[in-house]
Design a protein around this nucleic acid. Structure first.
Length: 308
DNA sequence: CTCGATCCCTGGACGC
DNA sequence: TGCGTCCAGGGATCGA
């Protein structure tokens, strides 16, 4: 279940292992998770000039291989540039990768046989292959020109690590949806998924079914702060490996050992020993402490249930 | 606007 | 052993 910290971990691994490599050829197996598989072959001859995370997306920024001498210099310059100015740099095309639930992307020696669910393999100019493996194919890959990427990015939510207090509060307190749904909504905040939503709500002592507009200013600011602390800590720990998350080196993360709510149904709350409960909110399992995170009063129902 | 339901997909856990 | 069932959940979509 790659969320922001897991995707960030994979991006950092790829930056070390495949940044600057040129793609020589493209192999595609099953392609129903690729936006436009025919476009994919345009990857051939292009160079991976930058690798960035955008929410749960990975973006492999591409430059034409021909300007290789110039691009070498550019890459060095780009590394020295601030993140903000790098973002402003225009690339003609990018490879978008979303890991979905079970996606993995990592370089591999070419002589290692493809795994059962490897669906994309890009031959690199150093002889290795950058492979995408995804059993369930909930992930997504797309070859995006600059304009398509712009459309993709338009409407994305705020980056939870960079959003300020005022904007965070505005995005939450202007909504009548439950806070859990808001945290999971990628058009509100990009990159938060089920695990880090539950972990941050537990730390902020906010019940997942509370309505955004009914949270106090103080509660919302606490939530923002703990969310940032948790995400940053999880990045340091290289993410959470619940079932099959592996980073670009094939190694699991460590943050799952620090979970306080997620996956702990029936186990004692780390604060008050009350058994953690699991309910469905926003269609997802939501773990919380019924004592530390008191439930909101019953939401208004459209019509009172007929008596009797 | 917000909700729940449904679908996509496979593997793992579990009960019998 | 094997089979059926349920569950995991990111995201799109649809109807209420």
């Amino acid at each position: 279940m790659p969320e922001l910290p897991e995707v960030e971990t994979v991006v950092r691994g790829l930056q070390k292992s495949v940044l600057g490599r040129k793609i020589l050829s493209v192999w595609i197996g099953k392609s129903d998770f690729i936006d436009n598989p025919a476009e994919f072959f345009r990857l051939s001859g292009q160079k991976i000039a930058a690798i960035e995370r955008f929410g749960k997306f990975m973006l492999l920024r591409l430059t034409n291989g021909e300007e290789s001498a110039a691009a070498e210099t550019e890459t060095v310059v780009a590394v020295a540039e601030s993140a903000a100015s790098r973002e402003r740099k225009a690339y003609a095309a990018s490879l978008l990768v979303h890991l979905g639930m079970t996606g993995q992307i990592a370089p591999s020696a070419a002589d290692i046989p493809l795994e059962k669910h490897t669906h994309v393999s890009l031959t690199l100019d150093d002889g290795r292959e950058l492979r995408y493996t995804d059993a369930r194919r909930f992930g997504r890959m797309a070859y995006l020109t600059a304009d398509l990427l712009a459309k993709e990015i338009a409407g994305a939510g705020a980056d939870p690590l960079e959003v300020g207090a005022a904007e965070f509060a505005e995005r939450v307190r202007s909504r009548n949806a439950r806070i859990k749904a808001l945290l999971l909504d990628q058009s509100v905040f990009r990159g938060v998924g089920n695990i880090y939503a539950d972990e941050s709500l537990w730390r902020a002592k906010i019940h997942p079914a509370r309505v955004g507009a009914k949270l106090s200013v103080k509660e919302v600011e606490t939530l923002r702060r703990v969310l940032q602390v948790i995400l940053n800590r999880a990045i340091v720990m290289r993410g959470s490996s619940i079932s099959d998350f592996l980073d670009a080196n094939g190694e699991p993360g460590e943050y799952q050992r620090h979970h306080r709510a997620y996956g702990r149904e029936g186990k004692p709350c780390y604060r008050c020993r009350t058994p953690i409960r699991r309910v469905i909110v926003a269609g997802r399992s939501s773990y919380f402490c019924p004592k530390c995170q008191p439930a909101p009063r019953q939401r208004k129902s459209k019509r009172r249930k007929p008596s009797g």
